[in-house]
Amino acid sequence: MNVKILYLYPDFMSLYGDNGNVRILERRLKDQGFDVEIIKRTITDSAITFDDVDFVYMGSGFESNRNLVAKHLSQFKDGLVKAIDDGVPMLFTGNAYDVLGSSIMTPERDEIRCLGIFDFTVIDQIEKRFTGDVVLADTKKNDVYVGFVNRAGVLKGEGTLEFYVTKVIGSVPLTKDGVRKNNLLGVSLIGPLLLKNHKIAESFVKTICERKGTEYKEIRYPHSEKSHDKTKKALLNAEV
């Protein structure tokens, strides 16, 4: 059976090895017996359709690129919103999910209108880069996520944010992070977070299997599990 991954802006929002997320998911879906087709759409495309896609991914980029994406993607908002409502699984990592909020304030004090799917705003600055390792608590799923944040700004609108930032090693002035709606997940963690957070990867694969009406096969990925355990241990033990 064929699974379609819509990879948004792979050459424009590709800053922190985010390609790894798509590759990890592709691998896991193939292991489930699917044929995987990756559809790439970018800033120079005049149409982006969300019809018939089984997964949507977007990674981090330069802030200037992200701001252009906010404008570009707005043209296709209706399709995106419909896909979210239909329960299409989606992952937005790093600053990619900023475009789903209501607006971005640039360091030059220009306000960039975003898609407004979630009620938060992003305020960027140029004095200091906010970087650090973080531990996130997902209280609804009773899970813990680990990874790295690399941001130019902060998020305002804690009420809509999903996860509690329970530990920071470095300089990340966030107490909450991430958004979730149906099967869409947005989180500030950069890079291949599906490697270090195998449960998120599993959960996406399960959802895709369910939506495709195929049975989910339990497959273990020991290196991924070990990486999660090692990272979590190191971060929880690290002195701040």
């Binding site: 922190y16 985010d18 390792d133 890079g191 291949p192 990272t231 971060l235």
Partner: peptide, 11 residues
């Protein structure tokens, strides 16, 4: 410093 960030391996 310690960091868990190995994202650069994917670049």
């Amino acid at each position: 410093y310690y960091t868990s960030d190995s994202s650069w391996l994917w670049d």
